[in-house]
Design a protein around this nucleic acid. Structure first.
Length: 257
DNA sequence: ATGGTGGCACCGCCA
């Protein structure tokens, strides 16, 4: 069993990358964020040929999420339910015997902005959502672009970047509450190294070459899932393609889920 | 270097 997550930064611009990646890597589940299209413009025809089932929810220009699975997808819901909002940022679904919650968390813009307050509130409501609908004893995966670097080793220059919207003490404490609830950061379960990133800002000159990155993408699993996780790794290949992305694929492997 | 990159939409917004 293999699960992957990828911030596509436009599904139309990266349909080919994703189709090829599915064919080469054959994950059971692939979660996407930032598809950036209305549902009528989703590359459904190209993806239908992959043999994967998929569900998606988007809007014009911004956000947009999708879940692909080799297995039947049921119990699909979009967005936060308290109140119903941001359908294009979150998909909850059952597939392959587990529940998956795929999120694209708001980025936050600037610390003093309304948008950052919205991000914090969104995370608070997401934790409420987990509390209301699930138990940490269930097989539950939380994946996606969380727009959070959890600790110093998750950013290229912790001193310089401390206090920014994706890396600051309060935000880390917020993510810690999800871990206290019962989520295990599957990448960190398998790799302790600093400098392991999933995102390199386009605006940073030679960001990938200089490894000026951030670890913003996660696969989080409850204990019953985490104990079956055999590996979790970052696939940097999409950055080396003709049309690279600013994010890359994060992959988790499991035995007998 | 008062910039730089990238995607989408439209002539600016978001990352």
């Amino acid at each position: 069993m293999k699960v992957a997550t990828f911030n596509a930064n436009s599904i139309r611009a990266r349909t080919e990358i994703i189709v090829n990646w599915l064919a080469e890597n054959k994950p059971d589940i692939l979660c996407l964020q930032e598809t950036k299209v209305q549902d009528k413009d989703f590359s459904a025809n190209a993806f239908a040929k992959t043999g994967y089932e998929f569900v998606f929810k988007g809007e014009k220009s911004y956000n947009g999420v999708a879940v692909f699975s080799k297995h039947k997808i049921t119990n699909v819901e979009f967005g936060l339910d308290t109140p119903p909002q941001d359908q294009a940022r979150m998909i909850t679904a059952r597939t392959a015997g587990i529940t998956i919650v795929n999120t694209y968390i708001p980025q936050g813009f600037e610390m003093e902005s309304e948008k950052y307050q919205y991000k914090l509130n969104w995370l608070k409501r997401l934790l409420d959502y987990f509390n209301k609908h699930f138990k940490p004893t269930e097989k539950l995966l939380w994946t996606g672009d969380l727009n959070i670097a959890f600790e110093a080793k998750d950013v290229y220059d912790p001193a310089a970047l401390d206090g920014t919207v994706c890396f600051n003490r309060g935000l880390s404490q917020t993510l810690k509450k999800f871990m206290e609830w019962g989520f295990v950061d599957l990448f960190r379960k398998h790799c302790d190294e600093p400098g392991q990133f999933t995102f390199w800002d386009y605006r940073e000159p030679n960001g990938l070459k200089r490894n000026r990155g951030w670890r913003l993408d996660y696969i989080m699993g409850t204990e019953p899932i985490a104990k079956k996780c055999t590996n979790c790794y970052i696939d940097k290949k999409p950055r080396e393609l003709e049309k690279p992305s600013d994010h890359t694929f994060l992959v988790a492997e499991f035995k007998s889920l």
